[in-house]
Simulated assay, not measured.
Amino acid sequence: MAHPPTSTAQAALDNALRLQPGPEHVRTAELDAIHGRALAYLNVGYPVHFRGPAGSGKTKLALSLAQELARPVLLLVGDDTFDTRSLIGGDTGTRTRRVVDRYITSVMKMESETAPVWLDRALTIACTEGCTLVYDEFNRAPASANNVLLTVLEERILVLPKSGRGETAVRVHPEFRAIFTSNPEDHAGTHAAQDALIDRMVTIDVESFDRDTEIAITVARSGLAEVDAARIVDMVRDFRRSREWVQRPTLRASIMIARMAQRLELRVAADEPRFVQLCLDLLASRAKPGPNGVPDPRQRQMLARLIEHFCGAEAATSLRPARAGIAA
């Protein structure tokens, strides 16, 4: 039997994400293929896990996929301070109810009753109300905090403390769906996810998109002309292939350069000093440092060659795939 949402659940539902395609929404063959695969798993009831490095578009993919499910979306971002209560909720205090009986005018009878006050958190609300839970960077939370997900994803049962609900288990709503993201390369502040939890998910690795998709996303997120966005994307992709970096240059770097170039009305050209400085500001910090840990002039020269190759006077204006190995 369906029950009306509690006041805390209703408040959360009122504030749930109502996702709609915006002007930055991009559809390409590669994105459609990923969405199709993930949506098929979710429709059957399996949770989906997007795994990839920072800047690979995992969160955007997860939210875009959640939008297609047409259910309220609750976003949860993993944190090292999480415990089970952070996911399901817990007692937040007590509430006292006092009844005064004056049935006999000469006699006053008073009864007091004190009960714990339970506050639902995202997982409980999503499970009971049939929402889509997007759990971003779930492996930043300790494995012990995520143990409650094991029965949710397998047996479709949410186990709650008896003191909070007067019951030990809640049947998960049939429309509940879960989408997870994680970054396996970022070891700072992350925890090893337990095998039992990963085994209940369908993991889709997201390394980087193809060139056409990266160009389309960069154009949509920056408003820059396609030919200029292509030059920036090709430059960043070639830097990525070079492996001459300590922090992987991602699509996010392309978007940042394109946005700044558009906002500052800079020509995407190697003979535009401010554009060159912009590229160095956003890319040089990712390059391998010298032996003493300080910036290596040779790496800046390598980046200057990249800028000249893709944005110089001799660069082709057609949207052609970049040649590999220029940064080497």
Rank of each mutant, 00 (worst) to 15 (best):
D32W: 02
A33S: 15
I34P: 03
I34K: 01
H35N: 14
H35D: 15
G36A: 11
A38D: 12
L39I: 06
L39W: 01
A40W: 01
Y41I: 02
Y41C: 14
L42I: 10
L42G: 14
L42F: 10
N43H: 14
N43E: 15
G45A: 06
G45P: 05
P47D: 13
P47S: 13
V48N: 02
H49I: 03
F50W: 09
F50A: 02
R51P: 00
P53H: 11
A54C: 07
A54E: 12
G55R: 11
S56Y: 01
S56W: 02
S56K: 02
G57H: 00
K58V: 05
K58L: 08
T59E: 01
K60I: 02
K60V: 02
K60C: 09
K60D: 02
L61A: 09
L61Q: 09
L61E: 09
A62Y: 04
A62T: 00
A62S: 09
L63C: 01
S64M: 07
L65Y: 04
A66Q: 02
A66I: 00
Q67K: 04
Q67W: 03
L69A: 01
L69W: 03
A70L: 08
A70R: 08
A70F: 00
R71D: 09
R71T: 13
P72W: 06
P72H: 03
V73S: 05
V73T: 07
L76N: 03
L76Y: 03
D79P: 00
D80L: 08
D80S: 12
D80T: 13
T81F: 04
T81M: 10
T81W: 06
F82V: 03
F82T: 10
D83R: 01
D83P: 05
D83E: 14
D83L: 03
T84C: 08
R85K: 13
R85F: 06
L87M: 09
I88H: 04
G89M: 05
G89I: 07
G89A: 06
G90W: 01
G90S: 03
G90M: 04
D91W: 00
D91N: 08
D91A: 11
G93H: 11
R95Q: 15
T96H: 04
T96N: 10
T96Y: 00
R97K: 11
R97Q: 15
R98W: 08
R98N: 12
V99F: 11
V99H: 13
V99L: 14
V99K: 12
D101V: 09
D101W: 00
R102E: 15
R102H: 14
R102N: 15
R102W: 07
I104L: 14
I104K: 10
I104Y: 07
I104A: 11
T105A: 13
T105F: 06
S106C: 04
V107K: 05
V107C: 06
V107F: 01
V107G: 03
V107N: 08
M108W: 00
K109S: 13
K109E: 15
M110Y: 07
M110S: 14
E111A: 12
E111S: 12
S112C: 11
T114V: 14
A115E: 14
A115G: 01
A115Y: 00
A115T: 12
P116K: 05
P116M: 07
W118K: 09
W118L: 10
R121Y: 02
R121Q: 15
R121I: 04
R121K: 11
A122N: 11
L123F: 10
L123P: 11
T124V: 01
I125P: 03
A126L: 07
A126F: 00
